[in-house]
């Protein structure tokens, strides 16, 4: 197991929270909620070691399109980057509802 944290600049306020996914094989759980400050914070617990750069790549891409001040916590059980990106999109979509 490995834990990473990343911060991204934000320029919009978040209001709602959302939870998607499950910590099952090839999947992950995403908890998205408003951040207390003007920055987006991401914390990742992953079962697969050694993929810090790939996580950074996936999140860098996500935060080029998403600018809200959120706190995201991810519990990952070996999801592919594609699945991570999809769950992040779903969390954003759910937080809008």
């Amino acid at each position: 197991m490995e834990t990473f944290t990343f911060d991204y600049p934000a320029d919009q306020k978040a209001t709602a929270r959302a939870h998607v996914g499950v910590v099952g094989s090839g999947d992950l759980e995403v908890l998205l909620e408003p951040s207390p400050d003007q920055t987006a914070h991401v914390r990742i617990n992953t079962s697969v070691d050694g993929y810090g750069q790939v996580w950074k790549n996936v999140l860098d891409r996500f935060f080029t399109r998403f600018r809200k001040a959120v706190r995201i916590e991810i519990n990952d059980f070996g999801a592919t980057p594609g699945m991570v990106a999809l769950r992040l999109e779903q969390a954003v979509e759910e937080s809008r509802q």
Partner: peptide
């Protein structure tokens, strides 16, 4: 679980 290197679920 984390003490045993296993990712928890919230």
């Amino acid at each position: 679980l984390e003490m045993q290197d296993i990712v928890p679920q919230e």
